[in-house]
């Protein structure tokens, strides 16, 4: 219940409370003009109630959507898209939790960066410089998986 009494929702309730009587009055005004002989007013007599329905519809939609829900829906959609894209590169569908570490990195960046990362990988060093000196075998394997993934992305890009 509290979700309908946020600052944002209260503004929308207030707007609707002002708009509906205003639209009702405009309908009545156009109807009286139409009955007085102004044929053009008939068009508006039926239009104002439709505007009122539209206002109620938008009010209903907006009180049930919040900026947070909007961002959340975007994230869910992009996670699904990423896991689908990865599965396609591997030739088989991949669940989101089975994606290799770092798979999301390529998402926000240009493919050319991914190509650079894949080519910079040196298995003897276990990565680039000091940073990967103390990595565990699991980490090294994960890094290698990740880089193979980047390479497959780059390869798919080149084939396009």
């Amino acid at each position: 219940m509290a979700r309908y009494f946020t600052r944002r929702c209260l503004w929308m309730h207030a707007t609707l409370i002002v708009l509906l009587p205003a639209f009702a009055w405009l309908t009545w005004w156009q109807l009286s003009r139409a009955l007085a002989g102004n044929t053009l007013s008939w068009a508006y007599t039926f239009e104002w109630p439709l505007f009122a329905i539209y206002a109620v519809y938008l009010w209903w939609q907006l009180i049930h959507s919040s900026p947070d829900a909007r961002a959340e829906a975007g994230r869910t959609a992009s996670a699904e898209a990423q896991s689908k894209a990865f599965g396609k590169a591997r030739g088989a569908p991949v669940a989101a939790e089975d994606l290799p570490p770092g798979w999301a990195l390529t998402g926000g960046r240009e493919r050319s960066v991914a190509v650079a990362a894949a080519s910079a990988f040196d298995p003897k060093k276990g990565g680039r410089g000091e940073r990967y000196k103390e990595q565990t075998p699991e980490e090294a394997a994960a890094l290698e998986r990740y880089n193979r993934y980047l390479a497959s992305l780059a390869e798919a890009d080149r084939k396009k």
Partner: peptide, 9 residues
């Protein structure tokens, strides 16, 4: 949205 990673990568 198509490029962004999921929450908390």
């Amino acid at each position: 949205e198509a490029h962004a990673g999921p929450k908390g990568n």
